[in-house]
Amino acid sequence: MDVQAYIDSGILELFVAGVLSEAESREVQRLAAKHPEIQAEIQAIENAYVALGESMAPKGSALAFGPVGKEIGVETPGVRTLQASRKPWITWAGWAAALLLGAGLIWMASERQRLREDVQVLQLDNQLLEEQVEAAREALAGTDSLMRELRARDISVVPLQGQQAAPEAYARVYWNRESGQLLIDALGLPEPPPGMVYQVWSLKLDPLTPTSLGLLEDFSAEENRIFALNNPNESEAFGITLEPAGGSESPTLEQLYTLGAV
């Protein structure tokens, strides 16, 4: 650092005059502690300012310390100072109180942090519960609307019996002739093997004419195993066969799982 250039900049005069910012003043004091030339220059500048200030004092002014000493309670300076009159136990008690207070504050701060975390956990729990309630509510609403559909007046219920391919299997068809809506209750069908899918057929019996009504897609994902399809046909019977994924043009009769007449 170029100390002389720093001194020549004039910053030290502003520093002593007390017109620098706190940060700037701290920087000057820091440099003064490192460089004796700066420290000496500051002292010389202060002496000049002090002399100039003194020259502006009222003529013949004698400022006695007496009134100041009286104000601050020091009648005879030096004989009795405030420091000396203080009893040691008061000092110790003060420190002890400060320590206790400090410890208390730290404890309270940590307690506060802990409580805040607890609240956050509770809020999270609460949110999860709300989500569960919402899901249950939706499921209930779905079941409700399903019940209404099943109980409607004009519905034909067609039980489908298990066939040779799966004697244990059964299913039920709820068919609303008016709207053409068809609900398949497939709870009695086994899970289709991978790559296979159930296909629902509407049958005319004489002559036997199958018409595909659609596939029971995502069989395992549909928890209550109720599938909605549309059936505009004059059906006489319904059948469900197991077909390769994507379905077939005509039913594979060896894989006929269930069948029932209207």
């Binding site: 300012y49 002090v50 002399a51 100039l52 200030g53 003194e54 020259s55 502006m56 004092a57 009222p58 002014s61 400022l63 310390f65 100041v68």
Partner: peptide, 10 residues
């Protein structure tokens, strides 16, 4: 006080 009071007063 002795060192600075006069300057401050000025």
């Amino acid at each position: 006080h002795t060192n600075y009071s006069t300057a401050i007063c000025g």
